[in-house]
Simulated scan of single mutants.
Amino acid sequence: MDSKLIDALKLQMQPVAIIHTDEKLEKGLHFKEGNMFGCVAAMLVAASKKNSLAYFDRKTYGCPGGGVGLGFGDCYGRFPIDSLLSTGDKQMAAQMGSAGAIMEEGERFYKNPEQARKWVDSLPMTDVSTKFVLFKPWEMLTDEDKPELIVFFTNADQLSALVVMADYNKGTNQSVMAPFGAACQSILYAYEEAKQENPKGIIGFFDISKRTIVPRETLTFTVPFKMFMEMESHVETSFLETHMWKEIQERQ
């Protein structure tokens, strides 16, 4: 598919479309059933860099946070996410063997388990209606595809442009948000925005535990597909066609 917006941004990594489908792929990156340590965010990065499809279902989403991010409902269940995100649990870590090292001290993203629980309770849990969630790199999209979301991997210049474009025809100064979550959970927040009359773009990849899998200057910007198309339609009348942006393009 052609895109004036993507062309103007001069991205180093491909945008990735999030697609819901009931058709299982014969080829593509995926986790084996029962793999609780698979990282959805790493798959998202791989799809962008390697120009490869990736797909998931309710038995192959990797870690519980990944299942939540993909929209397979509340996958945390009895998993001690409150302790993991905060001060840890040495007793639980001992039961987990070699996989328990990070649980022993906790990730310290929240002061205590109670604060972490508030965060969990605030998540806009979603249960998608299809069997599979597919990651498809932009260059592989066809006119027949019907993406739910588009995920951009951006540097500061590109992110600035997307933030401005998100509010270009609204004038609200309320067209983006930057919630904390697992690196893949911007997808979850964007699902919620897709339900809104005036959706917002989601700035993400703030998860400290996964920052090393993307270049240092990289963040994501995730938008519902209808919002992407709206931004796409305004490129020719926007700053992206001015000398200001052309000067910035030259330093990409």
Results as ranks from 00 to 15, higher is better:
Gly171Cys: 09
Pro199Phe: 05
Ile213Trp: 02
Leu134Tyr: 03
Gln115Ile: 09
Ile187Pro: 04
Thr172Gly: 03
Gly204Cys: 04
Met231Pro: 00
Lys131Val: 11
Ser129Phe: 05
Ile150His: 01
Arg117Asp: 11
Asp143Cys: 06
Tyr168Glu: 04
Ser238Ile: 13
Glu107Asn: 07
Val120Thr: 02
Asp157Pro: 01
Asn112Lys: 05
Thr172Leu: 06
Asp207Met: 08
Thr222Phe: 04
Gly181Thr: 09
Leu162Thr: 04
Leu162Asn: 04
Trp138Ala: 10
Thr172Phe: 04
Leu162Gly: 04
Ile208Ser: 06
Ser209Gln: 04
Glu232Phe: 14
Ser175Trp: 09
Ala183Lys: 03
Leu141Glu: 03
Arg117Thr: 11
Glu144Ser: 12
Leu188Tyr: 12
Ile150Thr: 10
Pro215Thr: 00
Ala194Trp: 04
Arg216Ser: 08
Glu192His: 09
Arg216Pro: 05
Glu247Gly: 13
Asp143Ile: 13
Thr142Ile: 12
Val133Trp: 04
Ser175Phe: 07
Asn198Leu: 11
Gln249Cys: 15
Gln174Ser: 08
Thr237Gly: 14
Phe221Trp: 05
Thr242Cys: 13
Thr126Cys: 05
Leu141Gln: 06
Thr242Ala: 15
Met165Glu: 00
Thr218Trp: 08
Glu217Asp: 06
Ala190Ile: 10
Ala166Ser: 12
Met231Leu: 15
Asn169Leu: 02
Thr212Gln: 05
Phe152Ser: 11
Ala183Met: 10
Leu240Asn: 12
Ser209Glu: 07
Gln185Tyr: 06
Trp119Arg: 02
Val214Ala: 12
Val128Leu: 01
Glu241Cys: 14
Pro113Asp: 13
Lys118Ala: 05
Phe109Ser: 04
Pro224Thr: 07
Arg211Glu: 11
Phe135Ile: 06
Ile203Glu: 03
Leu240Val: 14
Thr142His: 07
Phe205Lys: 01
Ile203Gln: 01
